[in-house]
């Protein structure tokens, strides 16, 4: 196995740890590449197609490389009621990408998730896990500026 994936050793070889293994890979590389699928398949002794079958089931796993800053728009019920559709449209327009895409220079990527657990601050989004609440157009533009040159 590629030395790059030596960290899988910590996960434990039982097949029931497959999801954990995929999470470890995504945690390290930001997404699940073809190369890492091969490594996982070898490590667990599970055919690559089966690995893909499992990972495609779960929304968490990304098959394309995300940007340096991962923006997640919450479209849970509370955020939806409070206008998350517009938040999504504004973000798309500012960044020039749709949900599920990464911008050309690999700086921002955009995804839509269901509920970040901060519903009382709806509408919310997160940037690399940091949650921002009570969004309006002004605050979104400000937050993007903050990350623009980071």
């Amino acid at each position: 196995m590629d030395q790059k994936y030596a960290f899988l050793e910590k996960v434990g070889k039982e097949p029931s740890n497959l999801i954990k293994g995929l999470q470890a890979v995504q945690g390290a590389e930001g997404y699940v590449s073809d190369e890492s699928i091969a490594a996982i398949s070898e490590y667990f002794g599970i055919p690559a197609v089966e690995v893909e079958g499992v990972l495609s089931f779960y929304a968490q796993f990304k098959r394309v490389k995300p940007g340096k800053y991962k923006i997640a728009i919450c479209d849970g019920t509370a955020c939806h009621i409070k206008g998350s559709t517009q938040v999504g449209e504004w973000l798309s327009r500012e960044l020039g990408i749709k949900s599920g895409e990464t911008d050309a220079r690999g700086h921002f990527s955009l995804e839509t998730v269901a509920c970040l657990g901060c519903c009382s601050l709806a509408p919310v989004m997160s940037v690399n896990g940091r949650v921002y609440g009570k969004l309006d157009r002004k605050s979104i533009v400000k937050i993007l500026k903050e990350y623009e040159n980071k």
Partner: peptide, 26 residues
Amino acid sequence: IKEGAGAFVCGEETALIASLEGQRGT
């Protein structure tokens, strides 16, 4: 502790168990 991977149906008991076993959460 096992972390879920973003599938609503995995809250259902038998799907949750399948997911705990490392499979698709069906």
